[in-house]
């Protein structure tokens, strides 16, 4: 399940696991769940910021507002949520890097996270900034579906890291 070329990454994972931060989180009874709680709170915030725009792209939610307006409003909450998510995620990762290395769910998550981030800040942002009528609605729907699908894979596989090992 682990891609062959990632074998080169094992030393990096071992190094992360050996950092003093990783060790501190691992050796504490409560640090891991506390950091994970922040990870979950950021999940809710990101969910709200993403759904506000994706629902609108599907013609649902705050329909009387333009997609561009909602995207502009949601953006700071999305980037704020993602910052907390990545920071807390990195801390959780350092505490169990080796476990992650051998967890298929971790690799699925990372493989979906990169396209999700790239898609969100390139194509999705572009589509969301288009005025009414400037773009066919099929592209909006497709954008929302791809965004929701990618984030769902990230979230589900993320939860699954906890079930493995």
């Amino acid at each position: 399940m682990i891609p062959q070329r990632c074998i080169k990454l094992l030393p990096f994972f071992e190094w992360c696991e050996a950092t003093s931060i990783g060790a501190a989180i691992r050796n504490s009874q409560w640090l891991f769940p506390v950091i994970e709680s922040f990870h979950l709170l950021a999940l809710a915030l990101i969910g709200g910021a993403v759904l506000l725009v994706d629902l609108r792209l599907l013609g649902l939610g705050l329909r009387s507002r333009s997609v561009a307006e909602l995207a502009r409003e949601a953006e700071p909450w999305l980037t704020g949520g993602l910052s907390v998510m990545i920071a807390s995620g990195a801390l959780l990762f350092t505490s169990e890097s080796i476990k992650c290395y051998y967890s298929p769910a971790f690799w699925v998550k990372m493989s979906a996270l990169l396209p999700a981030l790239v898609f969100t800040f390139t194509l999705r942002r572009k589509v969301a900034s288009c005025g009414e009528g400037a773009i066919r609605s099929v592209w909006r729907i497709l954008t929302a579906v791809v965004s929701l699908a990618l984030w769902t894979v990230v979230g589900t596989s993320g939860r699954w890291i906890g079930f493995s090992g």
Binding site: A44, L45, I46, G47, G48, V50, L51, T156, R159
Partner: peptide, 8 residues
């Protein structure tokens, strides 16, 4: 994951 829909 329903945190996203409900709490979001």
């Amino acid at each position: 994951l329903t945190l996203c829909l409900f709490l979001g």
